[in-house]
Design a binder for these strands. Structure first.
Lengths: 157, 157
DNA sequence: TCGAACATTCTGTAAATACCGAACGATCAG
DNA sequence: CTGATCGTTCGGTATTTACAGAATGTTCGA
């Protein structure tokens, strides 16, 4: 059981707020919050509903949403005909990776913008060259970064 | 003048879409898009309105919003009583920096979560230790990263 | 002191979003 | 086959958001 104490409620809401800032639905953050401090780690949809006092439909929808985001996964069910979910190992890394991928997308857009300024003065291009540089740097630097980070967390286990 | 050609419109809309994915209002992205390819770099609110065919109120609001985000800045006005805006040098770096700061906020939340699991089995803590590690790593690694990146772009100028 | 040319702020509206409850569909025990 | 127990999906509602247009405030030239 989880979510009875005030500290747990507070934690769950902080995760929800964080998720909201990241562009995820707040309810998704709450579900995630439960699965970050639950004992045991695997919880059924009904468990989560009880804990959050939220409707089955919301929890079901958000659980599948979080699976798609790579943050949680379905756990082997102890009881037949019941879905258990748990936080997915490496979920945070995967989350960061996807975020960085979106950001790196600006790299190509900046290139297209530069071609629009073709032939014009260099001073006009510096804006987009900055974007190009920053996000190309993100793109390349992060691949190595994630590899190192992945190895590091794999080693710790 | 900007935004007449199809390529420019397309670029602006791509920036708008990117901004939307980053959680900024789409119209803010459009204003930013104009200021990334405008010639000259500094444009008045009216110029931007004309280019986007958007209302003054939206453009005014979004321009001030982007100033707050550190992505654009007010330019010294060539004509009195008129606000000129331009892309802010280092804006993308600042943008990334703030994003990373939000992400690093999870570092503290994870710590608070860990204290909730105090005394419980270590296997329960690994979820939050992962969060702790990833976002502490983000927090520290990025400070150095941004410094290097800042120096690099300063050198290029 | 007007009035023109701005920018900002307020108000309204249309669209998107978050959430719930109910209906529905599937699966298993009896 | 029937009912109980799940999960999913559908429809509705309330809140939020993204804009536009009108009203307001400000500065400057005549």
């Amino acid at each position: 059981m989880v979510g009875k104490e005030i500290g747990e409620r507070h934690f769950i809401e902080d995760i929800a707020l964080f998720c909201e800032q990241m562009g995820l639905p707040r309810m998704a953050g709450r579900v995630l919050g439960v699965l970050l401090i639950s004992d045991p780690p695997s919880q059924s949809l009904n468990d989560i509903c009880d804990c959050l006092q939220a409707s089955k439909s919301s929890v079901s929808t958000m659980a599948r949403f979080l699976v798609g985001e790579g943050l949680i996964e379905q756990a082997p069910c102890l009881v037949p005909r019941r879905d258990y979910f748990r936080f997915r190992t490496g979920g945070w890394l995967e989350f960061m990776r996807r975020r960085m991928e979106v950001m790196a997308g600006l790299h190509d857009i900046a290139d297209r913008g530069l071609s629009l300024l073709d032939g014009k003065d260099d001073s006009l291009k510096s804006r987009l060259e900055e974007a190009h540089d920053v996000f190309e740097f993100v793109d390349t630097e992060f691949r190595g970064w994630f590899e190192r980070m992945g190895q590091r967390s794999r080693k710790q286990r």
